[in-house]
Design a protein around this nucleic acid. Structure first.
Lengths: 189, 189
DNA sequence: TTCTTCACTTACCATTTGGTAAGTGAGTTC
DNA sequence: GAACTCACTTACCAAATGGTAAGTGAAGAA
């Protein structure tokens, strides 16, 4: 139920997805949905909470099965691409939630915040140790995040350059993004 | 009129913006809107057409006042950030249109396509001449596009890393993105 | 057996939605 | 000055929307 709603909200947006339509797709009455979630807003909350939890577990897994350092960056980017292929609606929803803004996006930002903090620490330590070029870590992170999620959530972008997201393209794209990141972090020449 | 509608569609999405609300904001009756555009769909078409034209003129200006080569890349990225600051709704709309997909997004992709073709040519020439690292130009372009627009259209991304898009942040962000691009294109070390 | 809870449905309902029909008044053309 | 166009309004309307109220049948507890 939440899953179908997630797909709906991700694809057509919160406002663009009616309870009637959702009910039809679930083959239950609209009132069944309202029984479980109280209101459309309640359904949205449930959907966001679930998405945040899923995102957290996926990303945490990526963090924990990797070693601190560059390996972890690779692991997280790999996880992002894996999600894009396996559960594209999760990233679509992320984008929709981002547009809805706080307080609706709070559950998601709460999940992302510790990861961001960790990433900033990693970047700053790398810079201190002379491994990475010294620059504002927050700006680097924002760019990296945008590059990864953008390429993965906007099929239109890929279509314009004549690609579509399948397994092979994803693998090559992941490599490109990682090389991008590496090049940007390391010292020039 | 189109401008207000653009802002509405960009901020709350096409489905999330009612004609009644728009009419209220414009201080006319809803039927005035329908008189001019025939239907809500007609209004959307007009909005997208206008946005595509604006985008085209902004980007064309960036292309023409720059010299071929790296200077042109800088000029286009600069233009993207200028748009983000001066007319954020244009980029928000771009994202919404991208979600609506074809045929609604056709007007926009038509504008982007020649620019993409030009960019691909530039990248491939650079690779042939040994200036840039050899890689799939389409993948590079997709990543570059995603990094630029993502950082600029998703205020949430910035908020999570503790920033918000103002003039100073934009300038620094632009520098970071450009350094990103440069580093990714040039040979390692 | 009776009582209660649970998951769900049927029957409504007020409001909002995009849209049509029929004007109205200010210019403009002939 | 009559006919017409233009930009816009008033008066509606059917469908869709999110939501409430009042059941109903099945399963478990007393």
């Amino acid at each position: 139920m939440i899953e179908i709603a997630s797909v709906g909200f991700a694809e057509t947006g919160f406002a663009g997805t009616s309870l009637d339509e959702l009910a039809r797709r679930l083959d239950v009455t609209k009132q069944t949905i309202l029984y479980h979630f109280g209101s459309k807003e309640g359904l949205l909350t449930a959907v966001i909470t679930q998405a945040a939890a899923d995102l957290q577990s996926e990303l945490n897994a990526a963090v924990h099965k990797s070693e601190p350092g560059w390996d972890r960056v690779e692991s997280i980017v790999r996880a992002a691409f894996a999600i894009a292929l396996r559960r594209p609606e999760l990233l679509g929803l992320l984008r929709e939630v981002s547009r809805l803004g706080p307080p609706r996006s709070d559950a998601v930002t709460d999940v992302l915040e510790p990861l961001v903090a960790q990433a900033l620490e990693f970047l700053e330590r790398g810079m201190d140790e002379g491994l990475f070029r010294t620059q504002d870590a927050r700006l680097v992170l924002a760019s990296a995040y945008a590059a990864t999620t953008g390429v993965v959530t906007e099929p239109d972008v890929l279509r314009v350059v004549g690609l579509s997201l399948d397994l092979r393209v994803a693998a090559r794209l992941r490599r490109t993004v990682l090389e991008f990141l590496e090049a940007a972090l390391l010292h020039h020449r």
